[in-house]
Design a protein around this nucleic acid. Structure first.
Lengths: 321, 321
DNA sequence: CACGGCTCTCGACAAAAGTCAAATCTGCCT
DNA sequence: AGGCAGATTTGACTTTTGTCGAGAGCCGTG
């Protein structure tokens, strides 16, 4: 990690510009280079996280709805992305917000568990760079061989890259064909250590998957549409880090789950800050299951989903009384 | 702390501009206001810490000299402001650097002890705003009645204001006329609690004062030039949070110190991160004393001072062998 | 040693952001 | 209701910044 001569220059330029508030041409004359170069250096500085521009996400927690959600579901913090006005694509909105929230939650020296999925990868993709050197990003579950760009290891690596952190991948398949093999693999020292290390994380980032034919588990061939359907009728309500959970947020007792290599839910629950991000409105039930199972403490969702959650809680309350 | 309607707008504008990367005119049309207003909002957002622009101070620790200082004096981290090229005023350079380092060291929920002096106030003055809501800034020592703008309470309040944090001043004089009175005042519940709370701080910010006629203690009338001179011959080497220390960094046994209301050195040493900033080259001996006494773990100084420290250590080493 | 291929740098132009005085709005007092 | 003081907003203008293609320097290779 020796600092290249150019990096030194970028650093100096960034310092003079952002910390001292000089103009670009002043910086240029200080460093005896052209202003155009300064502009380029500054862009690089922003891209590599030498300078950090972060905007408070407080606006999105201040919302009354967010507060009520925190109260009714016992969550530590909820962020709600306004559905309507802002940008063309509402789900991008959620991802942008989630990325900011994530960066706000990360601290130096943290160990971060990352699951996989389109949502997680989208977040990684738009997340700005930061310079947290002694952070470790660990992969929460095994890999799928599919050619998707949001494979578990990709998610982990991309986030590690953005944070300038260490990425700890693990190269085991997510699902094996027999329970015995899975058990054997889980006992392998390399794998065992990685899985044991999950509980030591300070922060986790994941989404929740739906139990339907569109699930990545189906798309990647881990389960057939028919199997998925069968699991659903057995009570499957969602997918967390590759594992099927029921409506109470517990691991569903089924062959599939026993063949999976992934962090145990108990380990996940041991992580202090569990950030769950849900983009799709269709993932209402999966989300409910995850929340019921105490699988998240911090939540980023869209306004519409927020409403549905509150309504649901209201009705459940009425029924109970 | 109800959010004024305008603040909401500022927040939204900042979000769209900095997080989503829209241009100002795009933001303007989104929010149905003129672009000029957006520009103004954004300035306010930066000023109030809704957006945070911070540049890594790593450049200044990467220095070989800084590393050697860390090693030879057993410090956690050292930052060295390059003396020559950068700006007109080298001591401003140090303060700018110190402010950035300080902001980098502060974490949410921290309790911060702040002493006083021109250096500390300069830092407070140029420090950019941040939005750390549950941070407490506590004053480390009593006040002086002088009309200086860098009175202890001013320093504390200004820093608290910049961080959007709670400021805990304490209104006792720094020096009393008799030891009995000081003892009595220290026993006062309000004062006692405040002093006891110092050891709970996570971070301290102070400089070190010189023992000469230019000292603020003299300028503010706490000591006469003659008394100062007398203390010097008794072994006074520096001033920390209003107290006189000897060359070993211990409290000097003298009447003055017994009449002072300030945090005990033991409490200061109990603080995990003790950030000391020294601007003036003349404060070489005071700094040595402070370092010897373990009163700082993190150090921000100029290049010239860094050299002197290293040379001194080198010579001391030679003499010893 | 000449030749591509490569990155880095610069000048000039276009785009974006900052600024200021005038206009408008707002609440409040008479 | 009128009018005044303060803050807020705006349009027009200036300054600053981003970008692009051209050119310069640098290396390994044929």
């Amino acid at each position: 990690m020796a600092i290249r001569p150019a990096e030194q220059l970028i650093h100096k330029a960034a310092w003079l510009y952002y910390a001292h508030g000089l103009r670009q041409d002043e910086v240029a004359s200080q460093l005896n280079i052209s202003r155009a170069s300064v502009a380029m250096y500054l862009r690089k500085a922003r891209e590599t996280g030498i300078v950090n521009i972060s905007t408070s996400t407080q606006l999105f927690t201040d919302d009354v709805t967010a507060r009520r959600l925190e109260d009714t579901f016992g969550l530590d913090a909820v962020w709600i992305a306004p559905e309507n006005a802002y940008l063309a694509d509402p789900s991008t909105d959620i991802a942008v917000l989630a990325a900011s929230v994530f960066l706000e939650l990360v601290k130096k020296g943290d160990r971060i568990g990352v699951a996989w999925g389109r949502t997680v990868y989208t977040i990684a993709d738009i997340m700005s760079y930061a310079d947290l050197q002694d952070v470790t990003v660990v992969q929460l579950c095994g890999n799928l061989g599919a050619p998707y760009s949001y494979r578990p290891d990709q998610c982990t690596m991309e986030i590690a890259r953005r944070l300038n952190a260490k990425g700890l991948n693990f190269y085991a398949p997510l699902v094996l064909s027999t329970e015995e093999l899975a058990q054997g693999l889980r006992a392998e020292p390399v794998i065992r250590d990685q899985l044991a290390g999950v509980a030591d994380c300070d922060l986790a980032l994941y989404s929740v998957g739906a139990v339907d034919a569109d699930s990545h588990l189906v798309k990647c061939g881990a389960l057939s549409p028919a199997e998925m359907e069968a699991l659903r009728s057995q009570g499957a309500a969602g997918v967390i880090a590759g594992q099927i959970i029921d409506a109470k947020g517990e691991v569903l007792d089924c062959s599939y789950n026993r063949r999976v290599i992934s962090a145990e839910l108990a380990s996940l629950r041991a992580i202090e800050k569990r950030l769950m991000v849900v983009q799709e409105d269709t993932k209402f039930e999966p989300l409910l299951a995850a929340v019921a199972g105490g699988l998240c403490t911090h939540l980023v969702i869209g306004a519409h989903m927020a409403e549905r959650l509150l309504n649901h809680a209201g009705e459940a309350g009425k029924k109970a009384s």
